[in-house]
Design a binder for these strands. Structure first.
Length: 498
RNA sequence: GGUCCCUUCGUCUAAUGGUUAGGACACCAGGUUCUCAACCUGAUAAUAGGGGUUCGAUUCCCCUAGGGACUACCA
C-alpha cells in the first residue's frame, strides 16, 4: 500500500435506483479521479437497514457501467481495503465509537425516541432550533456503564464544542466558518449497533486512505462535524469537494414529484448514455471552448477542476432531449436499429438475425427493411421510444385515419381523389427497378410538371395515403421502403376512402 | 426559527477591474419544403437591489432581497 497514492471514493446508499443527482456526483468524482490519476473506489453505505433495497448494489454497478463509469476497487471487484460494504464492517465502527468515549469526545445517551420527539416538538413550539438538549451529556461513565449492564438501550453521541468557530475548507468554495454552538450532538452509533453515516464515512475514509471526498452540497452543513470527528480521532482529513445540487424546474432539490429522477427511467425511455453524460457534465462544469457536444472521452480529455461551478443548476429536460436527439443522429442505421428493436416488439418479431416478422400481416421482412424504416425516423427521434409512434405505420396492416386529412389545405376531396387515381396509374406503370426514392421523385415530379400541377396537390395526398398521417417523411422515401405492391394497395385504400 | 450555501439571458453557462457581456438549449422569424423533422441563417433575451473601493465595476468588499440545503437512532 502506497500512502502517497490519491484515492477517491463514491459512497452511495443502496436504496433503489440511481438518482440523476447521484449520477452527476459519480460523474464528477470519476472525472476528478481520472484527472488526478486516482484510484476510484466504490463503497456501499448500507448502514440504514430500514431503507435497504434488495439487489440495489448490482443495479447500481450495472447502470454506472452502462454510462461508462467504472471502478478500480469495490464490492464487485475486491481490493486491499475491503470489505467495501459497511454492513460488513460493523465491529470496526463500534470499536472506534468506544475509542471516542474513552477520549471523552463522545458519550452514551439513553434518551428514548419518545422523549426526543417530545423535546423537539416543544422546541419547535417555542420557535427554537430543534436540537438535542444534551440530557445525557454529563452522565458519568460509571453510571452509563451501569445502565448498559442493566440492559438499557443506548446510542453514542458526538460531543460538540459549546462555543467558538469551526473552520473548514471546501475545495470548491474555499474556507467556510461555522458557529460551533449550532452544531448538534449527533448520533454516531445507533442503538442497533449500526453506525450513522457520519461515523461510518469518516472511519472508512480514514481506513481506506481516501484522499479526496466528493459528495453533494447537501452535506455541507455536516461538514464541520466531520472535521471535528477527524480531530477527535487525531486523523488527517481528506480534501472535500461539495458539488452543487441539481434542482427541479421550480427550484428545490431534484425530486420524484416533478418527473423522472432515476437514470433507469431515462434508460428505459430510450435516452442514450452519451446524452445523459454530456448533459450531466455540463450541469456545473464547462469546457474551455464553445463546443458543447462532447462524448465521454472528450469530456475526460477536457475536464478540469477549475472549471467546476458552485451554483445549483436546474435540470432542463429540453436540453437533455436535444443531446439525445443529437446522439441518436450520430448513430448509423445498423446501430440505431439494434437499439430501437426492443421498442418495436409489439409490431415486429425476431425470427433470426436477418429476418423479422411483421406481426400484423405475418409478413417476413429483412433486417435491411427495418434499418430503412429506422433511417426514416432518425431525424425525428428525441428518444428511442419515439420510434414506435414514428414508424408504426410501416407495421400496420390497415391504416386508420380520417379521409379528410388526405386533402391538401389548398385543395378539395374530389381533386385529391383524382390526383391519387392519376398517381396510381403512373405508379402501376413504373418498373420495379425504378422503385427507388430518387427515381420515384424524378418520375412523379416530372409528371406533375407535365400536367402543370402543384406539388402539394399530388404529394400531400400521396404521402397521407402511404402513411395515414399529416406529419411524416416524404412520400418517395416511404414508397421506396414500402415497395410497389404495398404502396399501391395503400393508395387504393385512400381512393376508396374519398 | 437557526446554521450554512448560492445569485450573469426562461434554462445551462462564458468573460474581464476597461468587451458591442460570448456560447449552448428553448422560444420566435426566415430559408429549404407536399407535411413534420433534420439542416442553414437571423432575431429577442441577462450581470437581483442598494451602498462603498476605484479614473473605471458585472468582476473586489458590505448590506438587503430572493432562492436552496441542512436542522433524524436517513443517507
Amino acid at each position: 500500500m502506497n500512502n502517497s497514492k490519491i484515492r477517491l471514493r463514491l459512497a452511495p446508499s443502496p436504496t433503489g435506483f440511481l438518482h440523476i443527482g447521484n449520477l452527476r456526483t459519480a460523474l464528477f468524482s470519476y472525472l476528478i479521479a481520472k484527472k488526478l490519476g486516482a484510484q476510484f473506489i466504490l463503497r456501499i453505505e448500507d448502514t440504514d437497514q430500514k431503507r435497504e433495497v434488495e439487489g440495489a448494489v448490482e443495479s447500481l454497478v450495472k447502470i454506472l457501467d452502462w454510462v461508462g463509469i467504472n471502478f478500480d476497487e469495490g464490492p464487485h471487484l475486491g481490493g486491499d481495503y475491503g470489505p467495501y460494504i459497511q454492513s460488513e464492517r460493523l465491529s470496526l465502527y463500534q470499536k472506534y465509537a468506544e475509542e471516542l468515549i474513552e477520549k471523552g469526545e463522545a458519550y452514551y445517551c439513553f434518551c428514548t425516541a419518545e422523549r426526543l420527539d417530545k423535546m423537539r416538538a416543544e422546541q419547535e413550539a417555542q420557535k427554537m432550533a430543534p436540537r438535542y438538549d444534551r440530557a445525557c451529556h454529563d452522565l458519568s461513565l460509571e453510571e452509563a456503564r451501569k445502565k448498559i449492564a442493566a440492559g438499557e438501550k443506548y446510542v453514542i453521541r458526538q460531543k460538540m464544542p459549546l462555543s467558538g468557530e469551526v473552520k473548514v475548507y471546501d475545495e470548491m468554495r474555499g474556507e467556510i466558518v461555522f458557529k460551533a454552538a449550532e452544531l448538534d450532538d449527533q448520533v454516531l452509533l445507533k442503538s442497533d449497533g449500526f453506525p450513522t453515516y457520519q461515523l461510518a464515512s469518516v472511519v472508512d475514509d480514514h481506513l481506506m486512505e481516501i484522499t479526496h471526498v466528493t459528495r453533494g452540497a447537501e452535506w455541507l452543513p455536516s461538514y464541520p462535524k466531520n472535521i471535528l470527528l477527524y480531530q477527535s480521532f487525531g486523523w488527517t482529513a481528506p480534501k472535500f469537494f461539495h458539488f452543487p445540487l441539481i434542482l427541479n424546474k421550480g427550484g428545490g432539490k431534484l425530486s420524484k414529484r416533478q418527473g423522472d429522477v432515476f437514470v433507469e427511467d431515462y434508460r428505459s425511455k430510450g435516452y442514450l448514455p452519451e446524452a445523459i453524460i454530456n448533459f450531466c457534465a455540463l450541469l456545473g462544469w464547462h469546457p474551455d471552448g464553445d463546443k458543447e457536444t462532447l462524448n465521454f472521452s472528450e469530456i475526460i480529455e477536457n475536464f478540469s477542476i477549475k472549471n467546476l461551478g458552485i451554483s445549483p443548476a436546474v435540470f432542463d429536460l429540453d436540453k437533455l432531449d436535444f443531446y439525445n436527439g443529437y446522439y441518436i443522429r450520430q448513430k448509423n442505421d445498423q446501430e440505431l436499429t439494434k437499439l430501437c428493436l426492443p421498442y418495436l416488439e409489439k409490431y415486429v418479431e425476431k425470427i433470426n438475425d436477418h429476418e423479422f416478422k411483421i406481426i400484423a400481416c405475418e409478413e417476413v421482412v429483412s433486417l435491411i427493411y427495418l434499418e430503412q424504416v429506422i433511417a426514416l425516423s432518425k431525424d425525428r427521434m428525441k428518444k428511442l421510444s419515439d420510434i414506435v409512434e414514428l414508424s408504426e405505420f410501416f407495421f400496420k396492416e390497415k391504416l386508420d385515419y380520417e379521409a379528410s386529412i388526405l386533402v391538401w389545405k389548398k385543395s378539395t376531396a374530389p381533386e385529391a381523389k383524382n390526383k391519387l387515381q392519376e398517381l396510381k396509374q403512373l405508379l402501376e406503370n413504373t418498373e420495379k427497378e425504378n422503385w427507388s426514392k430518387l427515381k420515384l421523385e424524378e418520375i412523379i415530379v416530372s409528371y406533375i410538371k407535365e400536367k402543370e400541377g402543384k406539388n402539394g396537390d399530388y404529394l400531400w395526398p400521396l404521402r397521407v395515403a402511404l402513411t395515414g398521417r399529416e406529419a411524416s417523411p416524404s412520400p418517395f422515401e416511404v414508397a421506396e421502403v414500402l415497395g410497389k405492391k404495398e404502396s399501391l394497395a395503400r393508395i387504393e385504400q385512400a381512393i376508396i376512402k374519398l
